[in-house]
């Protein structure tokens, strides 16, 4: 049986949640949790989750010989990064001064301690943990059926700062706006956890399972340009 969706296992966190959520929304799909580069290469779609700290993530990726398989997948097929799996797509993380995969231009920074106050002056906690509103910066096939401003579950202390604003697909506020979703070609990546975000999260995962980035309308959506 061919692998429809490979969930990349590099020893960082709870992958069961991701695979169970996809199996729930797409019962017919063959979902495999794997650390085998050959399986990732063969899969129709790839989900790249991850939790924990950036230095550990990069070390585990290399310890398992997965770097090239992840880069190849991100260049060639529908690819969904989640949480740490979004952050390490960028060039560099402030967390442990870590060189990341460099698939997308930009950096990863910590919520700055001095900025963590709400408009009434109350302290905001880090990690940013809980359900926050996600604003859709641009239309995208993965947002279909999800209301603008819908709440998703977050838990993170670092956030991405893409060099190119055109990849920003979504943002949240804590307390300033930060990028929580990026889209570039066949890559879609989110800081929040769709697998833990109840119905809207399942909708996003369901959209990913049927997403065909090669289609003309998807390309138009992503560029934000009018399509003739």
């Amino acid at each position: 049986m061919s692998v429809d969706i490979a969930v990349i296992d590099y020893g960082m966190g709870n992958l069961r949640s991701v695979s169970k959520a996809i199996e729930h929304i797409a019962p017919a799909a063959n979902v495999v949790v794997t650390s085998d580069p050959a399986v990732i290469a063969e899969a129709g779609r790839v989900v790249f989750p991850g939790q924990g700290a950036a230095p550990d993530c990069m070390r585990e990726i290399d310890a398992r010989g997965l770097r090239q398989a992840i880069i190849d997948a991100a260049r060639s097929k529908p690819f969904l990064g989640i949480c740490m799996g979004m952050q390490v797509l960028f060039e560099h993380s402030e967390e442990g001064d870590t060189a990341c995969l460099g698939i997308l231009p930009g950096t990863v920074q910590r919520f700055p301690h001095e900025a963590m106050r709400d408009d009434q002056g109350n302290k905001l906690k880090v990690p940013h943990m809980g359900w926050n509103n996600v604003h859709q910066a641009a239309p995208h096939p993965l947002w279909v059926g999800i209301e603008e401003g819908a709440r998703f579950y977050f838990v993170h202390s670092y956030f991405v700062q893409p060099t190119s604003p055109e990849v920003i697909a979504g943002f949240s506020h804590y307390p300033f706006p930060f990028t929580c979703a990026v889209a570039s070609g066949n890559i879609f990546a989110v800081q929040f956890h769709p697998e833990k975000s109840q119905n809207d999260g399942l909708t996003l995962l369901g959209n990913f399972v049927t997403w065909n980035p090669g289609e003309r309308d998807a390309a138009c959506d992503m560029s934000g340009a009018a399509c003739a």
Partner: peptide
């Protein structure tokens, strides 16, 4: 927390 991350 070193092994699995503070988040969990």
């Amino acid at each position: 927390s070193d092994r699995y991350g503070s988040q969990c």
